[in-house]
Amino acid sequence: MTPQRAETLEWLVQRASAAVLALCVIVHLTVIVLAVQGGVTAKEIAGRVGGSVPWLAFYSVFVIAVALHAPAGLRNILREYTSLGRRATHWIMAAVCVLILGLGFRAVVGLYGLGA
């Protein structure tokens, strides 16, 4: 794959993941507003998402979209505000992507496991 094609497809992925995130954030915030009526407890959260396959799927999509979107934006910021080379920013982007996937799925799987 040429660098030009890779760069363009990365840009497309960043835009597409932003569209997915917009929907995910709306669902996430709506649930928070509806759920937090007079306080929220860990038990209540566990009762809702624990063992729930639909919520597991939703938050998996959420984490994947964040893991694709945020590192690409971070790389652009590093390119514009630092003198780091393209190779360095590429590896930083990859590392942040792996970090978000790791932490995100640890939380998602952990919450799902509460219902087991």
Partner: peptide, 13 residues
């Protein structure tokens, strides 16, 4: 032309 404007420092920036 598309190749020239798609890569580093191109239109996506």
């Amino acid at each position: 032309r598309l190749k020239a404007i798609a890569g580093a420092g191109g239109c996506q920036s």
